[in-house]
């Protein structure tokens, strides 16, 4: 994902804003990291540049 995707994303559970934490970046793309909800604290992984916003029990 690119940085400006943050403007479009919110927490799917509570609609809260998300905080981005980057663990790997390749050029302008965030390849690995997490998105954490500032309201309900749910953490969503970013893997292979794709944020996974499915509920924790439906991620596999």
């Amino acid at each position: 994902m690119r940085d400006d995707l943050m403007e479009i994303l919110c927490c799917p559970m509570c609609k809260g804003d998300l905080t981005l934490s980057v663990t790997r970046r390749v050029k302008d793309e965030i390849v690995a990291g997490t998105l954490t909800c500032t309201k309900c604290a749910t953490v969503y992984p970013i893997e292979d540049a794709i944020p996974n916003l499915l509920p924790p029990d439906e991620r596999d």
Binding site: R2, I8, C10, P12, Y44, A49, N52
Partner: peptide, 16 residues
């Protein structure tokens, strides 16, 4: 350039 998001329909997305 595009971004993929793994989600159910439009969950977790704002406006388009």
């Amino acid at each position: 350039a595009l971004d993929g998001v793994r989600t159910d329909l439009l969950e977790g997305l704002r406006r388009f």
